[in-house]
Design a protein around this nucleic acid. Structure first.
Length: 260
DNA sequence: GCGACAG
DNA sequence: ATCTTGTCGC
């Protein structure tokens, strides 16, 4: 691969070494996506060793939000990526990529289903975000490599996983007021935080993906919140990824109350 | 063998 | 995630 080329992730043999996403610095391990569940789990265990749980991101100027949706009963994957200013959270740029879906949903292997399209979206973004908020878990995962951690290791970007529900781990009851937070544990180690992003809503499962510390992750999510349950970067990405569903909903309500 | 199980 | 209408609550 020539220096300067964006990182390509398809069709490469397992363990092929390429440059980090747009940074052209440390090489990163890129693997094949056409794998069996058993191979995927081995890849996760190997890549998990590359995750860093120490704060190591640039001064925050712009952040990104990632979310994925589906069309055609799952046949098509839609990856939405939105770039926003920080700390003002104003949308700056957005990218939507559609890919044929080629991996089933298997609990614990979500990244193998969604990341191919997400990585393509990153290649089309004109600027590199200083931090990424990703829908799903970070290291709060059976093998410590949820989609946010996987994305972080492959791109080298600082990432935070924000899950709407729990994949694994145990925790005490969370306070019911906005900002209340309690650690998420697995085998005696902290793997994330359970955060009440808004009073009266189900808590968020926040965990570092890469280059972010356990204590920092929930703080950054709090700073990315406005008045809703989900942090703004992810809300923006979700709106984009769910555009077809929203359009169909609007279509139905329009047919129920026709004008004229 | 029986649950649990991101999106 | 997606399919789907109305409905209970702040």
């Amino acid at each position: 691969m020539a220096a300067g080329d964006p990182c390509r992730t398809h069709g490469l043999p397992t363990d092929y070494v390429v440059q980090h996403y747009m940074t052209q610095q440390q090489p990163a391990l890129i693997h094949e996506w056409a794998v069996t569940p058993a191979e995927a789990r081995r890849i996760q265990t190997r890549l998990a060793a590359k995750v860093s749980l120490a704060d190591a991101y640039p001064a925050l100027r712009r952040v990104a939000g990632v979310d994925v949706g589906f069309e055609d009963g799952g046949a098509v994957t839609r990856a939405a990526l939105v770039l926003l200013s920080w700390p003002t959270l104003e949308p700056l740029e957005q990218v939507l990529v559609r890919h044929p879906t080629r991996f089933p949903y298997v609990p614990g292997l979500l990244s193998f289903r969604e990341l191919p399209a997400v990585l393509d979206a990153f290649e089309q973004l004109s600027a590199v975000p200083d931090l990424v908020f990703c829908d799903g878990q970070g290291v709060a995962h059976p093998r410590r490599l949820g989609i946010a951690a996987h994305l972080g290791v492959l791109t080298g970007l600082a990432c935070i996983g924000v899950g709407k529900s729990r994949l694994i781990g145990r925790h005490d009851a969370v306070g019911d007021r906005r900002g209340d937070c309690t650690p998420l544990w697995l085998d005696g180690a902290r793997i994330g935080s359970v955060l009440r992003s808004r009073t009266g809503v189900r808590p968020l499962y926040v965990s570092p993906g890469h280059r972010v510390a356990q204590e920092t992750a929930p703080q950054l999510v709090m700073q990315a919140l406005t008045r809703f349950r989900l942090p703004e970067p992810i809300r923006a990405a979700h709106r984009l990824a769910s555009a077809p569903a929203i359009a169909r909903a609007a279509e139905r309500s329009a047919s129920r109350s026709p004008r004229s």
